[in-house]
Design a protein around this nucleic acid. Structure first.
Lengths: 220, 220
DNA sequence: CTAAAAAACTACTGGGAAGTAGATCAATTT
DNA sequence: AAATTGATCTACTTCCCAGTAGTTTTTTAG
Protein backbone atom coordinates (compact mmCIF):
# COMPACT_ATOMS: atom_id res chain seq x y z
CA UNK A 1 0.00 0.00 0.00
CA UNK A 2 2.73 2.41 0.99
CA UNK A 3 5.12 3.62 -1.70
CA UNK A 4 8.38 2.61 -0.12
CA UNK A 5 11.84 1.70 -1.37
CA UNK A 6 11.57 -1.35 -3.62
CA UNK A 7 8.10 -0.60 -4.97
CA UNK A 8 8.98 -0.55 -8.61
CA UNK A 9 5.83 0.29 -10.56
CA UNK A 10 5.82 3.87 -11.75
CA UNK A 11 3.72 6.14 -9.59
CA UNK A 12 2.19 7.72 -12.65
CA UNK A 13 1.50 4.66 -14.73
CA UNK A 14 -2.20 4.25 -15.37
CA UNK A 15 -3.42 1.52 -13.10
CA UNK A 16 -4.60 -1.84 -14.44
CA UNK A 17 -8.25 -1.61 -13.46
CA UNK A 18 -9.34 -5.24 -13.10
CA UNK A 19 -7.34 -7.09 -10.48
CA UNK A 20 -9.41 -9.15 -8.03
CA UNK A 21 -12.92 -7.92 -7.49
CA UNK A 22 -14.49 -4.54 -8.22
CA UNK A 23 -14.17 -3.48 -4.60
CA UNK A 24 -10.47 -4.17 -4.25
CA UNK A 25 -9.67 -2.67 -7.64
CA UNK A 26 -11.64 0.47 -7.01
CA UNK A 27 -9.87 0.94 -3.71
CA UNK A 28 -6.44 0.51 -5.24
CA UNK A 29 -7.40 3.02 -7.89
CA UNK A 30 -8.21 5.48 -5.15
CA UNK A 31 -4.84 4.84 -3.60
CA UNK A 32 -3.07 5.24 -6.93
CA UNK A 33 -4.96 8.46 -7.55
CA UNK A 34 -3.96 9.98 -4.23
CA UNK A 35 -0.40 8.76 -4.61
CA UNK A 36 -0.21 10.45 -7.98
CA UNK A 37 -1.59 13.69 -6.63
CA UNK A 38 1.04 13.69 -3.91
CA UNK A 39 3.83 13.06 -6.41
CA UNK A 40 2.52 15.78 -8.69
CA UNK A 41 2.29 18.39 -5.95
CA UNK A 42 5.64 17.41 -4.49
CA UNK A 43 7.36 17.57 -7.87
CA UNK A 44 6.12 21.11 -8.40
CA UNK A 45 7.17 22.26 -4.93
CA UNK A 46 10.52 20.44 -4.93
CA UNK A 47 11.15 22.05 -8.32
CA UNK A 48 10.37 25.53 -7.03
CA UNK A 49 11.91 25.44 -3.56
CA UNK A 50 14.40 22.56 -3.69
CA UNK A 51 13.97 19.21 -1.97
CA UNK A 52 15.68 20.02 1.33
CA UNK A 53 14.02 23.41 1.71
CA UNK A 54 10.55 22.13 0.92
CA UNK A 55 8.77 20.72 3.93
CA UNK A 56 6.15 18.03 3.92
CA UNK A 57 3.84 20.56 5.53
CA UNK A 58 4.21 22.62 2.34
CA UNK A 59 3.30 19.62 0.22
CA UNK A 60 0.35 18.79 2.45
CA UNK A 61 -0.88 22.39 2.40
CA UNK A 62 -0.68 22.45 -1.40
CA UNK A 63 -3.04 19.48 -1.45
CA UNK A 64 -5.27 20.78 1.34
CA UNK A 65 -4.38 17.88 3.64
CA UNK A 66 -2.03 17.36 6.58
CA UNK A 67 1.38 15.82 6.93
CA UNK A 68 0.30 12.46 8.42
CA UNK A 69 -1.85 11.97 5.33
CA UNK A 70 1.34 11.81 3.27
CA UNK A 71 2.85 9.29 5.65
CA UNK A 72 0.00 6.86 5.02
CA UNK A 73 0.93 6.76 1.33
CA UNK A 74 4.71 7.12 1.54
CA UNK A 75 7.20 5.70 3.97
CA UNK A 76 9.10 8.96 4.32
CA UNK A 77 10.12 12.11 2.49
CA UNK A 78 12.82 10.36 0.50
CA UNK A 79 10.43 7.84 -1.01
CA UNK A 80 8.35 10.70 -2.45
CA UNK A 81 11.53 11.97 -4.05
CA UNK A 82 12.26 8.49 -5.41
CA UNK A 83 8.81 8.33 -6.99
CA UNK A 84 9.44 11.68 -8.69
CA UNK A 85 12.87 10.69 -9.93
CA UNK A 86 11.55 7.48 -11.45
CA UNK A 87 8.97 9.12 -13.69
CA UNK A 88 11.16 10.63 -16.40
CA UNK A 89 13.59 7.79 -16.83
CA UNK A 90 10.98 5.02 -16.80
CA UNK A 91 8.89 6.80 -19.41
CA UNK A 92 11.95 7.46 -21.52
CA UNK A 93 13.00 3.83 -21.29
CA UNK A 94 9.52 2.69 -22.29
CA UNK A 95 9.54 5.03 -25.29
CA UNK A 96 12.96 3.78 -26.35
CA UNK A 97 11.93 0.16 -26.18
CA UNK A 98 8.74 0.89 -28.07
CA UNK A 99 10.72 2.43 -30.94
CA UNK A 100 13.32 -0.33 -30.93
CA UNK A 101 10.65 -3.04 -31.01
CA UNK A 102 9.25 -1.88 -34.35
CA UNK A 103 12.64 -1.70 -35.99
CA UNK A 104 11.72 -1.68 -39.65
CA UNK A 105 13.60 1.56 -40.17
CA UNK A 106 17.05 2.96 -40.85
CA UNK A 107 19.27 3.75 -37.90
CA UNK A 108 18.91 7.36 -38.81
CA UNK A 109 15.13 7.16 -38.47
CA UNK A 110 15.37 5.15 -35.27
CA UNK A 111 17.58 7.81 -33.75
CA UNK A 112 15.28 10.58 -34.91
CA UNK A 113 12.24 8.83 -33.46
CA UNK A 114 13.86 8.10 -30.11
CA UNK A 115 15.18 11.63 -29.74
CA UNK A 116 11.80 13.12 -30.61
CA UNK A 117 9.91 10.87 -28.21
CA UNK A 118 12.31 11.33 -25.33
CA UNK A 119 12.42 15.06 -26.03
CA UNK A 120 8.63 15.23 -25.71
CA UNK A 121 8.83 13.34 -22.43
CA UNK A 122 11.43 15.62 -20.87
CA UNK A 123 9.36 18.63 -21.88
CA UNK A 124 6.14 17.11 -20.59
CA UNK A 125 7.82 15.97 -17.37
CA UNK A 126 10.05 19.00 -17.05
CA UNK A 127 9.73 19.44 -13.28
CA UNK A 128 10.28 15.75 -12.60
CA UNK A 129 13.42 15.66 -14.72
CA UNK A 130 14.92 18.75 -13.15
CA UNK A 131 14.19 17.50 -9.64
CA UNK A 132 15.85 14.21 -10.58
CA UNK A 133 18.94 15.93 -11.91
CA UNK A 134 19.27 18.24 -8.91
CA UNK A 135 18.25 15.99 -6.03
CA UNK A 136 19.45 12.53 -7.08
CA UNK A 137 22.06 12.59 -4.35
CA UNK A 138 19.39 12.59 -1.64
CA UNK A 139 18.06 9.19 -2.69
CA UNK A 140 18.67 6.14 -0.55
CA UNK A 141 21.18 3.81 -2.13
CA UNK A 142 18.45 1.26 -2.90
CA UNK A 143 16.39 3.81 -4.86
CA UNK A 144 19.48 5.30 -6.36
CA UNK A 145 20.68 1.92 -7.64
CA UNK A 146 17.32 1.02 -9.11
CA UNK A 147 17.06 4.31 -11.01
CA UNK A 148 20.70 4.20 -12.08
CA UNK A 149 20.11 0.76 -13.58
CA UNK A 150 17.30 2.13 -15.75
CA UNK A 151 19.54 4.98 -16.73
CA UNK A 152 22.38 2.61 -17.62
CA UNK A 153 20.07 0.46 -19.71
CA UNK A 154 18.92 3.53 -21.59
CA UNK A 155 22.44 4.79 -22.24
CA UNK A 156 23.59 1.35 -23.27
CA UNK A 157 20.87 0.96 -25.87
CA UNK A 158 21.49 4.43 -27.29
CA UNK A 159 25.17 3.59 -27.49
CA UNK A 160 24.36 0.45 -29.44
CA UNK A 161 22.08 2.32 -31.79
CA UNK A 162 24.83 4.81 -32.60
CA UNK A 163 27.46 2.12 -33.06
CA UNK A 164 25.26 0.09 -35.38
CA UNK A 165 24.47 3.24 -37.32
CA UNK A 166 28.15 3.93 -37.73
CA UNK A 167 28.76 0.33 -38.87
CA UNK A 168 25.91 0.69 -41.36
CA UNK A 169 27.56 3.82 -42.72
CA UNK A 170 24.62 6.02 -41.78
CA UNK A 171 26.52 8.03 -39.17
CA UNK A 172 30.02 9.39 -39.44
CA UNK A 173 32.65 7.18 -37.87
CA UNK A 174 34.97 9.69 -36.25
CA UNK A 175 32.53 10.97 -33.63
CA UNK A 176 31.58 7.60 -32.22
CA UNK A 177 32.45 7.55 -28.50
CA UNK A 178 31.03 10.98 -27.77
CA UNK A 179 27.87 11.43 -29.84
CA UNK A 180 25.56 9.73 -27.40
CA UNK A 181 26.95 11.88 -24.60
CA UNK A 182 26.39 15.07 -26.59
CA UNK A 183 22.89 14.06 -27.64
CA UNK A 184 22.11 13.13 -24.05
CA UNK A 185 23.32 16.57 -23.07
CA UNK A 186 21.07 18.34 -25.55
CA UNK A 187 18.05 16.45 -24.27
CA UNK A 188 18.86 16.71 -20.58
CA UNK A 189 19.48 20.42 -20.83
CA UNK A 190 16.09 21.25 -22.31
CA UNK A 191 14.12 21.19 -19.04
CA UNK A 192 16.39 23.83 -17.52
CA UNK A 193 15.84 26.44 -20.24
CA UNK A 194 12.54 25.58 -21.88
CA UNK A 195 9.53 27.47 -20.57
CA UNK A 196 5.97 26.55 -21.41
CA UNK A 197 5.13 30.23 -21.28
CA UNK A 198 7.95 31.17 -23.66
CA UNK A 199 7.68 31.97 -27.36
CA UNK A 200 8.80 28.61 -28.67
CA UNK A 201 6.31 25.79 -28.99
CA UNK A 202 7.27 22.36 -27.74
CA UNK A 203 7.08 20.87 -31.23
CA UNK A 204 9.33 23.56 -32.62
CA UNK A 205 11.93 22.67 -29.98
CA UNK A 206 11.57 18.97 -30.75
CA UNK A 207 12.06 19.54 -34.45
CA UNK A 208 15.26 21.51 -33.90
CA UNK A 209 16.41 18.96 -31.35
CA UNK A 210 16.08 16.16 -33.89
CA UNK A 211 17.96 18.19 -36.49
CA UNK A 212 20.72 18.98 -34.04
CA UNK A 213 21.04 15.34 -32.99
CA UNK A 214 21.31 14.12 -36.57
CA UNK A 215 23.89 16.79 -37.24
CA UNK A 216 25.91 15.61 -34.24
CA UNK A 217 25.78 12.04 -35.49
CA UNK A 218 26.82 13.24 -38.92
CA UNK A 219 23.67 11.89 -40.52
CA UNK A 220 22.88 14.54 -43.07
CA UNK B 1 35.88 43.27 4.72
CA UNK B 2 32.93 40.96 4.78
CA UNK B 3 31.86 39.34 1.55
CA UNK B 4 28.26 40.44 1.45
CA UNK B 5 25.62 41.06 -1.18
CA UNK B 6 26.90 43.76 -3.53
CA UNK B 7 30.57 42.93 -3.19
CA UNK B 8 31.28 42.34 -6.82
CA UNK B 9 34.91 41.33 -7.19
CA UNK B 10 35.30 37.61 -7.77
CA UNK B 11 36.27 35.75 -4.64
CA UNK B 12 38.86 33.80 -6.56
CA UNK B 13 40.42 36.60 -8.55
CA UNK B 14 44.05 37.09 -7.66
CA UNK B 15 44.31 40.12 -5.47
CA UNK B 16 46.01 43.32 -6.62
CA UNK B 17 48.92 43.37 -4.20
CA UNK B 18 49.83 47.05 -3.90
CA UNK B 19 47.01 49.15 -2.53
CA UNK B 20 47.98 51.57 0.25
CA UNK B 21 50.94 50.50 2.32
CA UNK B 22 52.58 47.13 2.70
CA UNK B 23 50.78 46.50 5.99
CA UNK B 24 47.29 47.12 4.67
CA UNK B 25 47.95 45.17 1.49
CA UNK B 26 49.36 42.17 3.28
CA UNK B 27 46.38 42.11 5.58
CA UNK B 28 43.92 42.23 2.71
CA UNK B 29 45.81 39.39 1.07
CA UNK B 30 45.32 37.35 4.22
CA UNK B 31 41.64 38.12 4.11
CA UNK B 32 41.39 37.20 0.44
CA UNK B 33 43.26 33.98 1.09
CA UNK B 34 40.93 32.91 3.89
CA UNK B 35 37.88 33.96 1.90
CA UNK B 36 39.05 31.80 -0.98
CA UNK B 37 39.64 28.83 1.26
CA UNK B 38 36.12 29.15 2.62
CA UNK B 39 34.63 29.34 -0.86
CA UNK B 40 36.68 26.36 -2.00
CA UNK B 41 35.66 24.17 0.92
CA UNK B 42 32.04 25.26 0.70
CA UNK B 43 31.87 24.57 -3.03
CA UNK B 44 33.09 21.03 -2.49
CA UNK B 45 30.67 20.36 0.36
CA UNK B 46 27.67 22.07 -1.29
CA UNK B 47 28.44 19.99 -4.37
CA UNK B 48 28.49 16.74 -2.40
CA UNK B 49 25.64 17.29 0.07
CA UNK B 50 23.55 20.05 -1.48
CA UNK B 51 23.35 23.61 -0.22
CA UNK B 52 20.40 23.24 2.15
CA UNK B 53 21.65 19.99 3.65
CA UNK B 54 25.16 21.25 4.20
CA UNK B 55 25.60 23.12 7.46
CA UNK B 56 28.10 25.84 8.17
CA UNK B 57 29.44 23.62 10.92
CA UNK B 58 30.34 21.13 8.19
CA UNK B 59 32.17 23.81 6.24
CA UNK B 60 33.96 25.03 9.33
CA UNK B 61 34.97 21.50 10.32
CA UNK B 62 36.36 20.89 6.83
CA UNK B 63 38.62 23.89 7.35
CA UNK B 64 39.47 23.06 10.95
CA UNK B 65 37.82 26.21 12.25
CA UNK B 66 34.50 27.09 13.86
CA UNK B 67 31.29 28.58 12.55
CA UNK B 68 31.76 32.14 13.88
CA UNK B 69 35.01 32.24 11.92
CA UNK B 70 32.96 32.02 8.72
CA UNK B 71 30.71 34.83 9.88
CA UNK B 72 33.64 37.18 10.15
CA UNK B 73 34.32 36.74 6.43
CA UNK B 74 30.78 36.33 5.09
CA UNK B 75 27.56 38.01 6.06
CA UNK B 76 25.57 34.80 6.03
CA UNK B 77 25.27 31.40 4.41
CA UNK B 78 23.69 32.76 1.26
CA UNK B 79 26.59 35.10 0.53
CA UNK B 80 28.97 32.13 0.49
CA UNK B 81 26.68 30.55 -2.08
CA UNK B 82 26.71 33.78 -4.09
CA UNK B 83 30.51 33.80 -4.11
CA UNK B 84 30.50 30.24 -5.43
CA UNK B 85 27.92 30.95 -8.11
CA UNK B 86 29.86 33.93 -9.39
CA UNK B 87 33.09 32.06 -10.11
CA UNK B 88 32.13 30.11 -13.23
CA UNK B 89 30.20 32.79 -15.03
CA UNK B 90 32.66 35.60 -14.31
CA UNK B 91 35.59 33.53 -15.55
CA UNK B 92 33.62 32.48 -18.63
CA UNK B 93 32.72 36.08 -19.37
CA UNK B 94 36.33 37.15 -18.99
CA UNK B 95 37.47 34.41 -21.38
CA UNK B 96 34.83 35.39 -23.91
CA UNK B 97 35.82 39.04 -23.85
CA UNK B 98 39.47 38.13 -24.13
CA UNK B 99 38.82 36.13 -27.30
CA UNK B 100 36.53 38.78 -28.77
CA UNK B 101 39.08 41.53 -28.11
CA UNK B 102 41.71 39.94 -30.38
CA UNK B 103 39.27 39.40 -33.23
CA UNK B 104 41.66 38.87 -36.14
CA UNK B 105 40.04 35.55 -36.93
CA UNK B 106 37.14 33.99 -38.77
CA UNK B 107 33.86 33.56 -36.93
CA UNK B 108 34.46 29.85 -37.09
CA UNK B 109 37.76 30.22 -35.24
CA UNK B 110 36.30 32.67 -32.76
CA UNK B 111 33.54 30.19 -31.93
CA UNK B 112 36.03 27.35 -31.62
CA UNK B 113 38.26 29.39 -29.31
CA UNK B 114 35.43 30.55 -27.07
CA UNK B 115 33.95 27.07 -26.78
CA UNK B 116 37.34 25.57 -25.94
CA UNK B 117 38.14 28.21 -23.33
CA UNK B 118 34.76 28.09 -21.67
CA UNK B 119 34.83 24.31 -21.80
CA UNK B 120 38.11 24.29 -19.94
CA UNK B 121 36.67 26.63 -17.34
CA UNK B 122 33.57 24.52 -16.68
CA UNK B 123 35.77 21.46 -16.29
CA UNK B 124 38.20 23.25 -14.03
CA UNK B 125 35.38 24.80 -11.98
CA UNK B 126 33.14 21.76 -12.18
CA UNK B 127 31.85 21.89 -8.59
CA UNK B 128 31.21 25.62 -8.74
CA UNK B 129 29.23 25.32 -11.95
CA UNK B 130 27.10 22.45 -10.73
CA UNK B 131 26.37 24.22 -7.45
CA UNK B 132 25.36 27.30 -9.43
CA UNK B 133 23.02 25.32 -11.67
CA UNK B 134 21.42 23.46 -8.78
CA UNK B 135 21.23 26.11 -6.09
CA UNK B 136 20.71 29.35 -8.01
CA UNK B 137 17.19 29.64 -6.64
CA UNK B 138 18.51 30.08 -3.09
CA UNK B 139 20.27 33.32 -3.97
CA UNK B 140 18.95 36.63 -2.71
CA UNK B 141 17.39 38.64 -5.50
CA UNK B 142 20.29 41.12 -5.42
CA UNK B 143 22.88 38.38 -5.97
CA UNK B 144 20.63 36.60 -8.40
CA UNK B 145 20.19 39.74 -10.51
CA UNK B 146 23.88 40.50 -10.58
CA UNK B 147 24.77 36.99 -11.72
CA UNK B 148 21.92 36.84 -14.20
CA UNK B 149 23.18 40.04 -15.79
CA UNK B 150 26.59 38.46 -16.39
CA UNK B 151 24.86 35.41 -17.80
CA UNK B 152 22.71 37.55 -20.09
CA UNK B 153 25.74 39.44 -21.34
CA UNK B 154 27.47 36.17 -22.14
CA UNK B 155 24.48 34.71 -23.99
CA UNK B 156 23.96 37.93 -25.87
CA UNK B 157 27.53 38.01 -27.15
CA UNK B 158 27.44 34.36 -28.18
CA UNK B 159 24.19 35.05 -30.01
CA UNK B 160 25.85 37.91 -31.88
CA UNK B 161 28.83 35.78 -32.78
CA UNK B 162 26.59 33.13 -34.29
CA UNK B 163 24.47 35.63 -36.18
CA UNK B 164 27.49 37.37 -37.64
CA UNK B 165 28.91 34.00 -38.63
CA UNK B 166 25.72 33.16 -40.43
CA UNK B 167 25.75 36.53 -42.19
CA UNK B 168 29.35 35.90 -43.20
CA UNK B 169 28.33 32.55 -44.68
CA UNK B 170 30.54 30.60 -42.30
CA UNK B 171 27.66 28.93 -40.45
CA UNK B 172 24.53 27.43 -41.95
CA UNK B 173 21.58 29.78 -41.94
CA UNK B 174 18.70 27.45 -41.13
CA UNK B 175 19.78 26.64 -37.57
CA UNK B 176 20.19 30.20 -36.38
CA UNK B 177 17.88 30.78 -33.41
CA UNK B 178 18.74 27.51 -31.68
CA UNK B 179 22.46 26.86 -32.16
CA UNK B 180 23.61 28.96 -29.26
CA UNK B 181 21.11 27.21 -27.01
CA UNK B 182 22.35 23.79 -28.12
CA UNK B 183 25.99 24.73 -27.75
CA UNK B 184 25.25 26.21 -24.34
CA UNK B 185 23.64 22.91 -23.46
CA UNK B 186 26.65 20.87 -24.49
CA UNK B 187 28.92 23.02 -22.37
CA UNK B 188 26.65 23.27 -19.35
CA UNK B 189 26.07 19.55 -19.30
CA UNK B 190 29.74 18.61 -19.11
CA UNK B 191 30.17 19.19 -15.37
CA UNK B 192 27.39 16.74 -14.58
CA UNK B 193 28.93 13.79 -16.43
CA UNK B 194 32.64 14.50 -16.65
CA UNK B 195 34.77 12.91 -13.97
CA UNK B 196 38.39 13.79 -13.36
CA UNK B 197 38.99 10.20 -12.39
CA UNK B 198 37.37 8.83 -15.55
CA UNK B 199 39.12 7.52 -18.65
CA UNK B 200 38.76 10.63 -20.76
CA UNK B 201 41.25 13.45 -20.42
CA UNK B 202 39.98 17.00 -20.18
CA UNK B 203 41.64 17.98 -23.44
CA UNK B 204 40.08 15.03 -25.24
CA UNK B 205 36.66 16.22 -24.08
CA UNK B 206 37.42 19.79 -25.15
CA UNK B 207 38.49 18.67 -28.60
CA UNK B 208 35.30 16.71 -29.17
CA UNK B 209 33.28 19.56 -27.70
CA UNK B 210 34.70 21.97 -30.24
CA UNK B 211 34.03 19.53 -33.08
CA UNK B 212 30.46 19.02 -31.89
CA UNK B 213 29.86 22.75 -31.59
CA UNK B 214 31.12 23.43 -35.10
CA UNK B 215 28.97 20.62 -36.41
CA UNK B 216 25.93 22.15 -34.71
CA UNK B 217 26.69 25.50 -36.29
CA UNK B 218 27.10 23.78 -39.63
CA UNK B 219 30.69 25.00 -39.94
CA UNK B 220 32.37 22.01 -41.55
C1' DC C 1 57.24 43.40 28.67
C1' DT C 2 52.65 45.44 28.88
C1' DA C 3 48.40 47.34 26.94
C1' DA C 4 45.32 47.67 23.25
C1' DA C 5 43.27 45.69 19.28
C1' DA C 6 42.14 42.03 16.36
C1' DA C 7 40.94 37.32 15.54
C1' DA C 8 38.90 33.23 16.76
C1' DC C 9 36.35 30.38 19.99
C1' DT C 10 32.71 28.52 23.53
C1' DA C 11 28.24 28.29 24.55
C1' DC C 12 23.93 29.65 23.75
C1' DT C 13 18.97 30.99 21.54
C1' DG C 14 15.17 30.52 18.74
C1' DG C 15 12.84 28.59 15.24
C1' DG C 16 11.80 25.07 12.11
C1' DA C 17 10.84 20.45 10.33
C1' DA C 18 10.74 15.08 10.14
C1' DG C 19 8.39 11.73 11.99
C1' DT C 20 4.71 9.67 15.49
C1' DA C 21 0.91 8.46 19.01
C1' DG C 22 -3.39 8.72 19.88
C1' DA C 23 -7.90 11.01 18.96
C1' DT C 24 -11.65 11.97 15.77
C1' DC C 25 -14.38 11.53 11.91
C1' DA C 26 -16.59 8.95 8.03
C1' DA C 27 -18.01 4.92 5.81
C1' DT C 28 -19.52 0.31 5.84
C1' DT C 29 -21.57 -3.60 7.88
C1' DT C 30 -24.81 -6.04 10.69
C1' DA D 1 -29.10 2.40 14.98
C1' DA D 2 -24.91 0.43 16.94
C1' DA D 3 -20.46 -1.38 16.03
C1' DT D 4 -16.50 -2.07 13.40
C1' DT D 5 -13.13 -0.59 10.25
C1' DG D 6 -10.42 2.56 7.84
C1' DA D 7 -8.96 7.20 6.77
C1' DT D 8 -7.44 11.56 8.31
C1' DC D 9 -6.30 14.92 11.74
C1' DT D 10 -4.46 17.28 16.23
C1' DA D 11 -0.88 17.74 19.01
C1' DC D 12 3.09 16.51 20.14
C1' DT D 13 8.58 15.04 20.52
C1' DT D 14 13.06 15.35 19.19
C1' DC D 15 16.67 16.83 16.72
C1' DC D 16 19.06 20.09 13.98
C1' DC D 17 20.94 24.37 12.45
C1' DA D 18 21.47 29.59 11.29
C1' DG D 19 22.86 33.18 13.59
C1' DT D 20 24.82 35.74 18.03
C1' DA D 21 26.76 37.40 22.67
C1' DG D 22 30.36 37.50 25.21
C1' DT D 23 34.95 35.37 26.47
C1' DT D 24 39.58 33.87 25.42
C1' DT D 25 43.60 33.79 22.73
C1' DT D 26 46.79 35.81 19.58
C1' DT D 27 48.88 39.56 17.38
C1' DT D 28 50.48 44.25 17.10
C1' DA D 29 52.22 48.50 19.03
C1' DG D 30 54.36 51.28 22.37
Amino acid sequence: MQFGGANVKSALATNDAADVGDGASLKSEFVAFKTNRIVEAASRLFYERGYSSCTLDHVAAELGVTKPFLYSYFKNKESILAAICEVGISEALAALEQVMAADHASHRDLLAQVVAKVGRIVIHRQEYVVVYQREMKHLSSADSDRILRMRASFDHQIGNLIREGVDAGEFEADVDPFVSVWIGGLISWIPTWYSRKGQRSAEEVIEHLVQASLRLAGAN
